[in-house]
């Protein structure tokens, strides 16, 4: 899942302040939780309350699109609702505003979310955690199914760094040391020899900028 978080409201208010008629576009797609109709309605109410306090008479329209990253769907779903709209406030991940910007070159589009990571959903505690950096060169087979590029704070492909204390990262005592997890996992799998293998530095050329399906 793509994990996003709502931007601070003053930043959003700042970005929409030149406009009066703003369309808040949710996205039912893959963010967790989806920033769909509920999020759009809730944000509308928050911005209206804020606008009232600061004497701004915003006129919000609210809808939710199926997938803002699908340019065909977004074009057809959004078009009928744009009359009189001065700007679109997108609740999608970073892809949504870019799709809308490409589709409607004259229409200002503003992001309401900060996109953080591709995350794992953990029901215990309701947490979402970064698990994949979309590097284009998956090495999970060598690291026991644990991604060091993502989960090691230093992104080390040949760890551990020596800074961990009791299994926790020196950058953040709450955070597990990815390389310690990898060691334990490989030990259980009886494949500790894998940890001795040298992995070359990340190949940035491996990350594609376009793929056809």
């Amino acid at each position: 899942m793509i994990v996003t978080a709502l931007k601070p409201l003053d930043e959003i208010l700042d970005s929409i302040s030149p406009y009066r008629k703003v369309l808040i576009a949710g996205c039912d797609g893959c963010t967790q939780p989806p920033r769909g109709l509920r999020e759009a309605e809730t944000l509308k109410k928050l911005l209206e309350l804020a606008g009232k306090r600061w004497g701004k008479d915003f006129q919000f329209k609210v809808l939710s699109l199926v997938k803002q990253c699908d340019s065909f769907l977004t074009a057809s779903e959004l078009k009928p609702h744009l009359e009189g709209v001065e700007a679109v406030l997108s609740l999608a991940c970073g892809i949504g505003p870019q799709t809308i910007a490409e589709l409607f070159p004259e229409l200002p589009v503003l992001p309401a979310q900060n996109s953080h990571f591709l995350g794992q959903e953990n029901r215990e505690g309701g947490a979402l955690e970064d698990r994949c950096s979309a590097c284009g060169n998956c090495i999970l087979a060598q690291t026991g199914g644990i991604c060091p590029l993502t989960r090691c704070a230093k992104g080390l492909l040949n760890g551990a760094c020596g800074g961990a204390r009791e299994g926790k990262c020196e950058m953040d005592p709450e955070r597990d040391c990815a390389w310690e997890l990898i060691y334990q996992r490989l030990e259980r799998l009886g494949k500790l020899d894998l940890i001795r293998e040298f992995r070359p530095p990340r190949n940035y050329q491996a990350k594609a900028w376009r793929l056809t399906t």
């Binding site: 939780p33 989806p34 309701g126």
Partner: peptide, 10 residues
């Protein structure tokens, strides 16, 4: 329903 699984999550 958009089948997001939020209900199942919580």
């Amino acid at each position: 329903c958009i089948a997001c699984g939020n209900c199942a999550f919580y």
